[in-house]
């Protein structure tokens, strides 16, 4: 399920523990996309039909979303830059991040076009690495040395259609996934202190802000202005640097960063008083979405 996989496994593992089917579940991810050769430039979509017109790459799908978002709502490349700058600033405070050199909006605007309207600094990294997390009962976790983090709510939603669905470009199933997670957790967007939003491309953060209810449809571009998603802002997003600047572990590190923030382990990038974190993921072209609400245990 691509970039939704980590959260989907978190959901399955939580259910397995809650049902008594398992005492503890290790969820494990590894990838060698950087040294092993990226697979992300293949014909976008399924079958051979899109490459006929030169439609390749995950970047192009998100570029289509960005262009339509710009057209309908007035979103700008400068607003996309805000997302890239915030993620890089956060990565600069994360010793484990791959890209720590701070960037400016001007750097973003000067970076080369990849698939217009997306520039190089709108795109996530391609990385080697591994991630694991362990899910067990809260009771069991409380007996361990580290502060536990509770999985309050999880949700996933998937679309079997691509362009056959007129709303496909806007990935409406993301909203369904986020709402399911909020409902199970019994919390609302205004309760969230910090968010780890899937950022394969900058535009994805803007769309997730809308789908996760932090602003209304079309307002994501304005939301990211004025440092609102930076540390110290109203809703710090991707506090470790995200897929854009920490490492492209396909969203798995978003879960890890959620856990670290709620444990208060983040040092210079710690969000003070963080008790609730929303984590989101999205994968398989635009078709799989998942979300989780994590809480300080």
């Amino acid at each position: 399920m691509g970039g939704a996989t980590g959260l989907v496994l978190l959901q399955l593992a939580s259910f397995a523990v809650a049902s008594g089917a398992a005492n503890a579940v290790a969820c494990v991810f590894g990838d060698a996309a950087r040294t092993g050769g990226s697979r992300f430039s293949a014909a976008a979509g399924w079958g051979d039909s899109w490459g006929i017109w030169g439609m390749f790459s995950a970047a192009a799908n998100s570029a289509l979303t960005a262009r339509r978002h710009m057209h309908e709502f007035g979103t700008t490349s400068l607003q996309l830059a805000e997302v890239a700058v915030a993620c890089r600033r956060h990565a600069s405070l994360n010793e484990a991040a791959s890209m720590r050199e701070p960037i400016t909006v001007e750097d973003h605007q000067a970076s080369r076009m990849v698939v217009d309207p997306l520039r190089l600094l709108d795109c996530c990294l391609i990385s080697d690495g591994g991630v694991a997390f362990i899910v067990t009962s809260l009771e069991r976790a409380r007996a361990l040395r580290r502060r536990p983090v509770a999985v309050l709510g999880v949700g996933q939603a998937n679309s079997p259609e691509t362009i056959g669905n007129p709303a496909w470009w806007y990935v409406p199933h993301q909203e369904t996934a986020a709402q399911a997670a909020y409902r199970m957790a019994g919390v609302a967007p205004r309760d969230i202190h910090v968010a780890q939003l899937y950022d394969n491309f900058t535009i994805s953060v803007i769309v997730w802000l809308e789908h996760a209810g932090f602003c209304k449809r079309g307002e994501g571009g304005a939301f990211v202005e004025g440092g609102r998603i930076r540390l110290g802002g109203a809703l710090p997003v991707n506090t470790a640097g995200g897929n854009l600047s920490e490492s492209y572990m396909q969203g798995w590190l978003h879960i890890v960063e959620g856990v670290r923030q709620l444990r208060g382990e983040c040092g210079a990038r710690q969000v003070p008083g963080a008790e609730l974190c929303l984590v989101t993921g999205r994968g398989m072209t635009l078709n799989c979405a998942a979300a989780a609400v994590l809480a300080r245990g």
């Binding site: 030169g54 390749f56 790459s57 192009a60 289509l64 057209h71 076009m113 990849v114 698939v115």
Partner: peptide
């Protein structure tokens, strides 16, 4: 045209000159 993109990156060598 619902949406459009312009490829600058060459993802497939056959489109190199395009």
């Amino acid at each position: 045209v619902f949406s459009y993109v312009v490829f600058h990156q060459v993802y497939h060598q056959a489109f190199k000159d395009d």
